[in-house]
Amino acid sequence: MIIFYDGNCPLCTKEMRLLKEADIYNKITLEDINTNDFEQRFNYIKHEDALAFLHGQQDNGEMIYGLDVTFAAWQTVGRHKWLTILQLPGIRFMADQIYKVFAKYRSPIARLTCKSTCGIK
């Protein structure tokens, strides 16, 4: 699985670090969407779309987005099984709406919430 994440987002970077620490079998590849050659290497992903919401690619090439990426990633490493609740129909809709707001405002949220834990100055 490949996860395309915003390396300029302290919250995103923190979660990716925690995910890779749990990835003892090296099943997940992380790709920072802000690298200079990102659009050349992944020309099927628009940078602006990747900034708007989390993108992932399953091993079979299928693209997944938003909370589906989070769910699949933690499932892949065998952690946070409680995230299964986000797949339930009524909860999924609400969680997706909340995620969209979070994704849009992740930078100000990071500045407010994780100065000490994410390394923000």
Rank of each mutant, 00 (worst) to 15 (best):
I3S: 14
F4Q: 02
F4I: 01
F4H: 01
Y5G: 03
D6Y: 03
G7W: 11
L11G: 00
L11D: 05
C12P: 03
T13A: 14
K14N: 08
E15D: 13
E15I: 05
E15S: 09
M16N: 04
R17F: 11
L19W: 03
E21T: 06
E21D: 06
D23E: 05
I28N: 02
I28S: 00
I28Q: 00
T29G: 01
L30T: 00
T35E: 13
T35P: 09
T35Q: 07
N36T: 05
D37R: 00
D37M: 05
E39Q: 12
E39M: 14
E39L: 07
Q40F: 13
Q40Y: 12
R41N: 12
Y44E: 15
Y44Q: 13
Y44T: 02
I45P: 14
E48R: 13
E48T: 06
D49T: 00
A50G: 08
A52I: 09
F53R: 15
F53D: 10
H55G: 03
H55E: 02
D59L: 01
G61L: 13
G61M: 15
G61H: 12
M63G: 02
I64Q: 06
Y65V: 06
G66Y: 02
L67A: 08
D68L: 07
V69G: 04
V69L: 11
F71L: 12
F71N: 07
F71T: 00
A72H: 14
A73K: 08
W74I: 10
W74R: 09
Q75Y: 05
T76S: 05
G78T: 03
G78F: 14
R79L: 10
R79Q: 11
H80L: 13
K81H: 08
K81N: 12
L83G: 01
L83P: 10
L83R: 13
L83S: 01
T84D: 10
I85L: 15
L86E: 03
L88N: 08
G90V: 12
G90N: 07
I91V: 15
R92C: 15
M94I: 14
M94Y: 07
D96N: 14
Q97K: 13
Y99Q: 08
Y99N: 10
K100C: 04
K100L: 08
V101L: 15
A103Y: 12
S107E: 00
S107Y: 05
A110P: 11
R111D: 09
R111F: 12
T113D: 04
T113W: 09
T113C: 15
C114T: 02
K115D: 11
K115W: 11
K115N: 12
S116W: 13
T117S: 15
C118M: 03
I120L: 11
